[in-house]
Amino acid sequence: MFFPLIRCAATLMLACLALTMSAPASADMDKIRQSGSLKVAVYKDMAPFSSDDGGIDVDIADALAKKLGLKLALLPFPAGEEVGDDLRNMVWKGHYLGYGPADVMLHVPVDRFLVARNDKVEIFAPYYRETVRLAYSKDAVPRFDGLDSLQGREIGVEKVSIAAVLLLGEGDGKFRDKVRIYPTAVEALQDLKAGKLAGVLAHRSEIESVLRDDARFGIQQVAFQRLPAQGWAVGMAVKKEARDLAQALQQALAELTASGEMGRIFARHGVQPVTP
């Protein structure tokens, strides 16, 4: 005769637990709306996505905030040694110096291995697919027939980058003597435009934003054994429990894409949007 009472009590406890577990999600969104601002973390020195002069991610952050009826509070931050460090500092915990966390972080790789290693965040809403490309001078290389066409010629790369690792290790180091290391890919591309280099290996977005369809230069995909041909998608990250915020941002992004605003944002920076 006590079993029904026990079942009722258990059901009530489970219901209360479910409400408790879901509370932080709505509480986070309510807190954001009460503050009137959406705090968005973007990388420093990642042109054309974010820099002192703005960028694609900065414009996306502003558009998302407006869609949610909020002001934008931008939190630029320097990249850590690993993306996991950035997620800890800017999404779920905050930096030990007191900077962050933000409500959402942009330009997060949408990668299943990264997701598996970072269970305190929700990674979602991919909005661009990045790839590595080779930009080359048509004057220096009138007939392009693969990367070997630039052998013996100077090629620029950004320091501590995927492009640098790939090029320095390609063909047992056969390009190594002619690789020129630059602080940023933008600086390398500017030297390419000035005729000081034959080519630059960099992210497609970096190349497009600097060369801006200049007919003097070609842009080619080059196959590297250690690099996925399709590149990698980037999206957003919020705290794992901030489900309402994630849903609101996903909806806002969908509306920006459908209206053509996302395409216009990329176009302002000379970059072709690539749907993940």
Rank of each mutant, 00 (worst) to 15 (best):
F2T: 11
F2R: 13
R7H: 11
L12A: 15
M13F: 14
L17H: 12
A18L: 15
L19K: 04
L19P: 01
T20S: 09
M21V: 15
M21F: 12
A23I: 02
A25S: 15
D28A: 13
D30Y: 10
D30S: 11
I32E: 06
I32M: 15
Q34A: 15
S35W: 06
S37Y: 13
S37R: 13
L38E: 05
K39G: 06
D45R: 13
D45L: 09
M46W: 12
A47R: 14
A47L: 11
F49W: 10
S50E: 11
G54H: 09
I56C: 11
V58K: 07
V58S: 09
D59W: 06
D62I: 00
G69T: 07
L70M: 09
L70E: 07
K71H: 14
P76E: 03
P76N: 06
A79W: 00
A79Q: 13
G80L: 03
E82G: 00
G84F: 02
G84P: 01
M90I: 11
W92N: 08
W92K: 06
W92E: 05
K93S: 09
K93M: 14
H95G: 07
Y99D: 09
Y99C: 01
A102M: 10
P109K: 08
D111I: 07
R112L: 12
F113I: 10
A116S: 14
D119R: 15
D119W: 10
K120C: 04
I123S: 03
I123A: 05
P126R: 10
Y127M: 10
R129K: 13
E130A: 13
V132Y: 03
L134Y: 03
A135Y: 05
Y136M: 04
D139Q: 15
D139W: 01
D139S: 15
P142L: 12
R143P: 01
R143G: 04
F144Y: 11
G146Y: 08
S149F: 03
Q151G: 00
R153I: 00
R153N: 05
I155N: 00
I155P: 00
E158P: 00
E158F: 00
K159L: 06
K159H: 12
S161N: 03
I162T: 14
V165N: 10
V165M: 14
L167N: 04
G169W: 02
G169V: 04
E170F: 10
G171S: 12
G171K: 08
K174S: 13
F175D: 01
R180T: 06
I181F: 11
Y182M: 01
T184G: 05
V186S: 05
V186H: 03
V186Q: 14
E187T: 07
L189G: 05
D191Y: 01
A194K: 11
L197A: 01
A198V: 01
A198Q: 01
L201N: 00
A202Q: 03
F217Y: 12
G218Y: 03
Q221A: 13
V222S: 03
F224K: 03
L227M: 14
W232F: 15
A233L: 05
M236A: 04
A237W: 00
A237Y: 01
K239T: 02
E241C: 03
L245M: 09
L245T: 13
L245Q: 06
Q247T: 12
Q247H: 11
Q250I: 00
Q250C: 00
Q251W: 01
A252K: 02
L253N: 02
E255V: 04
A258M: 07
G260C: 12
M262I: 11
R264N: 15
R264Y: 06
R264I: 09
I265R: 02
F266E: 02
H269E: 02
V271Q: 05
V271S: 04
T275A: 14
